[in-house]
Write a protein that binds this DNA or RNA. Structure first.
Length: 438
DNA sequence: TGTCGCCCTAAGTA
DNA sequence: ATACTTAGGGCGA
């Protein structure tokens, strides 16, 4: 089968508004494929193979069309979690030229409506640590992924790494997702719909494919979403201000330290699913449902909170429900309504695979003023390398840099005991624990 | 309410 | 080489 790419179209885009080289590999999406020896990224979205590349002034995009499988009907465009093809596609049947619809899809998926530079400025003004860390990581934007895909992807993410999660998601697409195109050796499928993963033999098949204990979670969640919930159940948990593609935006409710009511509700409902705890639920809320205040707290973020925000040391406190809510609420109060976006910037800055951003390291003495105390500490000054150069990671030069990457450095700072933040003092105790309801 | 052992796998580490 | 740990958790006791 043959096919052809469209010409490249382009959108004006600065790297501070969107850096695809960071955004597409920072662990929020797992399906984007970097073409070797090229700056090009590919992924199937809404049944179409998209291709992206970027320079300092523009984002370039094109799509691929197979001869035997022309542009899919627009009925596939609404989210896969809705197996209803008749009610939700009203806005998608408009007779727009192809490139016009492509740019709508891209602007929606890439979440381009907000001004990211302005958000970085606000977070930096509120938080010196953010300002310091974010310098080398501009253009990290939260994508609007399909809620169902986000749900399954983050069920896969437990006790796992980005590389293997990506492989598992790829297997789901190849074995259960609709075929889209073949280019060279590479076969492109879209992500499977819920009912495609609810078959009787799915669990055993996934186990044989190396999913481990996640196989049961995926199968059980697919059954619940496709058979035991109303159609559109998952999409209805979306932030009304950030709805699924093709749905009208509505006004949202009021922001609170623990998040808006709609966010709390979505978070809670997701906990009913198998294999979904607080962290996975927050990932889906943030990256699939458009709730910007969702702050997923994993072991990594927990370490960041202890290291840079004076939460109790790990030897004293473990990451439990109370500390989870305390950390998330703290970041919501610090960064505001889009706290989850800021969180992702710091998370990315600590990812091992981005060690090449810490190209040169030299020791200097810096006076850092934090709250009342002025502490003289020894710190590292990192100089960013070009953001558009996805080169092979430079070898970690010495133990010091290795520690930075692992997030185990900076035991040098000693914080006053009074300023350590304790979970019980900073958050209202929530009674919404998944386990307590059982 | 908090803590612990267990669940799967593959790559990295000692 | 072989055992152990880690990698963006969740669940039940």
């Amino acid at each position: 089968m043959t096919g052809v790419f469209s010409e490249w179209y382009k959108l004006p885009m600065s790297l501070s508004e969107l850096c695809i080289n960071t955004t597409l590999r920072c662990g929020q999406s797992f399906r984007w494929q970097k073409i070797p020896e090229s700056e090009e990224w590919r992924c199937v979205l809404y049944g179409r193979l998209f291709s992206l590349k970027q320079d300092s002034n523009h984002l370039y995009y094109r799509t691929y069309s197979s001869d035997a499988l022309p542009t899919p009907p627009s009925s596939v465009l609404p989210s896969r979690a809705t197996s209803d093809t008749e009610n939700n596609d009203g806005k998608l049947h408009t007779e727009k030229p192809g490139d016009d619809q492509l740019v709508s899809i891209l602007k929606h998926y890439l979440n381009l409506s907000s001004n990211l530079s302005e958000l970085y400025n606000q977070w930096s003004a509120q938080d010196p640590n953010f300002k310091k860390k974010a310098a080398a990581f501009s253009g990290v934007r939260i994508l609007r992924q399909d809620p169902w895909e986000a749900l399954v992807s983050f069920i896969c993410s437990s006790n796992n790494n980005i590389s293997r999660i990506s492989q598992m998601v790829e297997k789901l697409c190849i074995h259960y997702g609709p075929f889209v195109a073949t280019i060279g050796e590479r076969v492109y499928h879209d992500f499977p719909a819920p009912d495609a993963l609810a078959g009787k033999d799915v669990e055993s098949k996934l186990r044989s494919l190396g999913f481990g204990y996640r196989a049961k979670y995926i199968y059980q969640t697919a059954v619940m979403v496709s058979q035991e919930r109303e159609k559109g159940w998952l999409n209805d948990l979306c932030n009304p201000e950030s709805p699924a593609f093709g749905i009208e935006a509505k006004a949202g409710d009021e922001m609170k330290p623990e998040g808006r009511d709609g966010y709390r509700n979505a978070h809670e409902k997701l906990l009913e699913l198998q294999g979904v705890g607080p962290k996975v639920s927050d990932c889906v809320c943030l990256m699939g449902l458009g709730w910007g205040e969702s702050v997923p707290v994993d072991t990594h973020v927990w370490q960041i909170a202890q290291r840079d925000y004076r939460f109790g040391k790990s030897s004293q406190k473990t990451l439990n429900k109370a500390t989870y809510d305390a950390v998330a609420n703290h970041f919501r109060k610090l960064w505001g309504q889009e706290a989850g976006w800021a969180h992702s910037v710091l998370f990315t800055a600590d990812l091992r695979s981005f060690a090449d951003r810490l190209a040169t390291t030299k020791k200097v003495d810096v006076k850092v003023k934090e709250e009342e105390s002025e502490v003289k500490i020894e710190t590292e000054v990192k100089t960013a390398v070009a953001l558009t150069a996805p080169k092979v990671e430079a070898e970690v030069k010495n133990e010091q840099e290795k520690d930075i990457v692992k997030g185990t450095a900076s035991k040098k700072r000693k914080a006053p005991a009074e300023s350590i933040i304790h979970a019980g003092h900073t958050t209202e105790t929530r009674r919404t624990s998944k386990r307590l309801r059982r």
